[in-house]
Design a protein around this nucleic acid. Structure first.
Length: 574
RNA sequence: GCGCCCAUAGCUCAACCGGAUAGAGCAACGGCCUUCUAAGCCGUAGGUUGCAGGUUCAAGUCCUGCUGGGCGUACCA
């Protein structure tokens, strides 16, 4: 409802304003010889943590003190003296070891509220990506069973990462890579074929490495009923012939891909490209990669196998490319696949994977370097997430009825809901092992961080509804003229927090750390709830009321945008 | 053995390319609903940021070495 063209996307922020003032001061100090003329210091402005320190602070005097041959506080004095007059600042102080603290005029600080309201859904977006293409590969589960919690974490992190990249001006391709032809699929086929013949996992003749979950029976029954399954990337009708292994294989793969599609759809995650490992073989890309590696001179034969000297590129031991028996190891198609990504024009590629695959990072990168294809050394980027432990009543949950040996993503979505599942899985840094507490995620109470954030949004919607009902609809012009009335410390803190949103989005995208958005939203919600309880919005004073409505609307908008980045809904009432 | 990740309040976790007094929630205790949603707020208590060094004006954050945990260390993926 507030979506409008993003003409305010590049509205000048308070930090930009202060940075410009400091640049002027720096030039003056260079001109009078206080600072060396050739220095080009990076100016860093931080929002302060403590209101005593003003709204913003810079450590510039401390970082320059050495090159200026002065004490930090002394240099700070010079800098402050050289700062041009500005109507947006009502005070500047030097504090502590040499910080320069800026106290911003209330009305000027609050102008960001109107920027937010005008920008609507695009507030927080930027064009720092310049429209450059980025490919994000995530989930990439083989179609051998339902997705598990780990895949869920990958889906939540990967998809949020994509949304962050889109919000910062990148063209994002979401890609899902899987193997429909390897040993795991052989085991799947044998398992379904066994079920088709009525053999159960407890039977001695059950395949040695077969999949034992109940879903195998579902696949077998569907196959024998001659059903048609439609996955996002394939469609197969079962032949219902218990002896046709190839037909069983094709059906089982399609069936389980479809199951995964359902899981992902329920999770709000979709893909642009499904990439088959088998296509690399069919199109000769694996062979071509091998030949290129051999030509590059980084290979040798030993023990009947063909090796790649990955130790030339930082690996701790060389790796087999072609086995003694003739087949290729998994790492070779991985290299061919990433060469293909590069050749498709993706100069930035991010792979989101479980950390249990971290040993592939060095190998894939080494293989790409050995190709001598001009691919940069750190290519591709990796985001590796650590294990997820699921608990209920303080006890680890290991089993699911459908999958048998692990907790499925669908179990979680059905039990705690999509919003809570997504939020929980994305709210922690990927590098940290996390515990998914089912009781907490289910609880419809103040314990639950998801509701805490959503409630802030719903609460403000309720206030707006009240304003309409009372015949006091929001008056943007009156609000704009009354922004200087937002002088309560809590209101000032909220304004500062809101202004931080775009750079938080940009930083989260750049660092590939989607959890930063969740952290931000918790802080924003906390400040909003505190302000709500302390400062009444619906007051009789028209100017004050509308200024506060503007603040509330801006909070609501940022809450909405932030939750959207996480793929979590922003309910209007709860 | 080697490689990667982690270690912050009793518990689950934050901490913005190193910044000022390390922050939330839960659990404990005490308050706030005849006024905009109490899925909320306010207050009290809780810390040698695993240990030992180093770099820096400044270290939870960077470096080195330990300790403890997770993952990996296949001619499996």
């Amino acid at each position: 409802m507030w979506a409008r063209p993003s003409r305010h996307r590049n509205a000048r922020s308070m930090k930009d304003t202060i940075t410009a003032l400091l640049e002027t001061a720096l030039e003056a100090l260079k001109a009078d010889g206080t600072l060396p003329a050739e220095s080009h210091p990076a100016i860093r402005i931080d929002a302060t943590r403590d209101r005593e320190h003003g709204d913003y602070a810079t450590n510039l005097a401390m970082t320059l003190a050495k090159s200026a041959g002065m004490k930090p506080r002394e240099l700070a004095e010079r800098l402050v003296a050289a700062l041009p007059e500005s109507p947006v600042l009502h005070d500047i102080e030097i504090a502590g070891p040499g910080f320069i603290n800026f106290f911003v005029d209330t009305g000027s600080a609050a102008e960001v509220l109107m920027t937010i309201i005008d920008a609507g859904d695009s507030y927080g977006h930027s064009d720092v990506g310049g429209g450059s293409p980025v490919q994000v590969e995530f989930v990439s589960a083989n179609p051998t069973g339902p997705l598990h919690v780990g895949h869920g974490r990958g889906a939540a992190i990967g998809d949020t990462l994509c949304r962050l990249l889109e919000a910062t001006g990148h063209r994002v391709t979401r890609e899902f890579y899987y193997n429909d032809a390897g040993a795991q699929i052989d085991n799947l086929t044998l398992s379904v074929a066994a079920r088709v013949r009525g053999i159960e996992p407890s039977d001695p003749s059950w395949p040695a490495d077969g999949y034992r979950g109940d879903y195998i029976r579902d696949v077998a029954e569907s196959y024998m009923r001659g059903e048609t399954v439609v996955a996002d990337d394939r469609r197969v009708t079962a032949k219902a012939d218990p002896d046709d292994q190839q037909a069983i294989r094709e059906f089982a793969v399609a069936y389980l891909r479809h199951e995964q599609d359902l899981d992902l759809r329920a999770f709000g995650v979709g893909f642009d490209v499904y990439f088959l490992e088998s296509s690399l073989y069919q199109q000769g890309k694996v062979e071509a990669t091998v030949e290129r590696l051999i030509e590059g001179g980084h290979t040798y034969e030993a023990d009947g196998a063909l090796w790649l000297r990955t130790t030339d590129f930082g690996d701790d031991k060389d790796r087999v490319m072609r086995k003694r028996e003739g087949g290729y190891t998994y790492f070779l198609p991985d290299v061919a696949y990433h060469l293909d990504k590069w050749q498709r024009g993706f100069t930035t590629v991010i792979n989101e994977q479980g950390a249990d695959h971290h040993s592939t990072v060095t190998r894939v990168r080494a293989g790409l370097q050995a190709l001598d294809a001009g691919i940069p050394e750190g290519y591709p980027d990796y985001v590796l997430h650590q294990m997820v432990l699921v608990t209920r009543s303080g006890v680890e949950v290991k089993l699911s009825k459908r999958a048998g040996s692990y907790v499925t993503l669908r179990d979680l979505i059905e039990e705690v809901g999509r919003d809570a599942t997504r939020y929980f899985l994305v709210a922690r840094p990927a590098t940290s092992q996390m515990t998914f507490d089912i009781d907490l995620a289910r609880s419809q109470s103040n314990d639950n961080p998801v509701y805490y954030a959503q409630y802030a949004h719903a609460r403000m919607c309720s206030v707006m509804a009240r304003a309409e009902r009372d015949g006091h609809p929001f008056d943007a012009e009156l609000a704009r003229a009354s922004l200087d009335r937002l002088a309560e410390p809590r209101e000032r803190d909220l304004i500062t927090r809101l202004q931080l949103f775009p750079e938080t989005v940009a930083r989260a995208a750049l660092a590939r750390e989607p959890h930063q958005i969740a952290v931000y939203l918790q802080e924003l919600a906390a400040e909003f709830h505190g302000c709500y309880n302390a400062v009444r919005v619906m007051v009789d004073d028209d100017a004050l009321r509308n200024a506060r409505l503007a603040l509330g609307l801006a909070v609501r908008q940022v809450m909405h945008n932030g939750l959207g980045l996480l793929g979590v809904s922003a309910p209007e009432e709860m």
